[in-house]
Design a protein around this nucleic acid. Structure first.
Length: 153
DNA sequence: GCCAACGTTGGC
DNA sequence: GCCAACGTTGGC
């Protein structure tokens, strides 16, 4: 099985790497974008490595690493009318939205900031840097993953 | 808090 | 199936 690499965005006010460090493991719910959904449903597999990115904070950047521990399965928060992730288009017979489970691996002593990524020639092709890129789940290459991780070793 | 860029919705 | 209106994202 070939391991793949991803970047997951989260607003730390909603869910941060510290929350994950505390919980050790979580389901990544609430993704309501079809492109991201397809990744979750079809491509993200147990064992894949994930960069945990904080958006809408100071500074924005990659704060640590986590690992996928469960392949894509239906996002049950879409079925729950009391959840603010509720979506009437989705139902258990024909789920529209998916999620995976991830576990905490490590938090960087200092985040790899967006500025740092922008100024690293090896990271210029990251989707993150593309104009107006809002995708909350995006693939990264093994090389990009390693450049980011080793910059904190 | 602003606002540009983007995805989705819904009228036609 | 077009496209304007709307809501959301996310850097600043």
């Amino acid at each position: 099985m070939i391991k793949k690499y991803w970047l997951f965005k989260s607003e730390p006010e909603a869910f941060s790497i510290d929350d994950l460090a505390k919980k050790k493991k979580t389901f990544w719910d609430g993704v309501r974008n079809y492109q991201a959904r397809n990744f979750l449903r079809d491509e993200i597999k147990s064992g894949d490595q994930v960069l945990f990115y904080h958006s809408n904070t100071e500074p924005t950047g990659v704060y640590g690493i986590c690992e996928v521990v469960k392949d894509g399965y239906p996002d049950h928060t879409a079925f729950d009318p009391d959840s603010h992730h509720f979506d009437p288009k989705s139902n258990p017979q024909n789920p529209a939205w998916f999620m995976v489970d991830i576990k905490f691996v490590k938090k960087f002593p200092k985040p790899v900031t967006l500025d740092e990524i922008k100024s690293n020639p090896k990271l210029q092709n990251m989707k993150l840097l593309q104009r107006g890129s809002r995708l909350s789940i995006q693939p990264v290459t093994k090389e990009e993953f390693n450049v980011i991780v080793t910059s904190r070793k």
